[in-house]
Amino acid sequence: MVESNMNNNRRTFVAAIVAVAAGALATLTPLAVGVATFLSPLFRKHKNHHVRVALLSQVPDDGLPRYFPVLTDREDAWNRTPQQRVGAVYLVRSAGEAQPIAFTAKCPHAGCFIGTTSGADQFKCPCHTSTFRLDGSRVRGDEEVSPRDMDRLPLELRKINGENGLSVTEVWVEYIDFQTGHKQAIRTA
């Protein structure tokens, strides 16, 4: 009798375990597969583009900011579209400088598009009103909502030769997406 009860209990226990396990496996497997697909962006790396944004002759050394859209081949899931505008940079060349400074237009605070007007002496973010000088530094320093100065992009001048011995200088930048909200400029992974 006792043995039979024990057998029954054991059977019930095993049945319960198997029922839960089988049920869980049956329902959770599709969920796990779905979640795995959902997580796929985590396994993708961000690609930074090296982009020709202007000719050096378009950036006179007058210290004024000039706006250039960033055009590059854009991959969006199943599409690849050549020469799409993926963002914008400001180039500023101070008097006597051979090389301009390149700023990304993305605000280090919350990622809005920093603006400037022709002849203006400041950059201004239209969202939370962060203000930057033309060298990218924050006007009110640490009082400003932006945690750091405007992000500079690595810039390279490339000479190319054309017909009749002509040579022009191109301005190339590495268009990096930086994380917002940190004191340091950290690249988006």
């Binding site: 962006p41 985590l42 993708r44 919350a110």
Partner: peptide
């Protein structure tokens, strides 16, 4: 971008919401 500032998981959270590193179809 604000979600990405969540400590520790922020970056992953943004990637999952955006469906990649750039805003697009996904």
């Amino acid at each position: 971008e604000l979600a990405s500032q969540t400590p520790v998981i922020g970056s992953a959270l943004k990637s999952l919401a955006v469906g990649g590193t750039e805003y697009g179809h996904h």
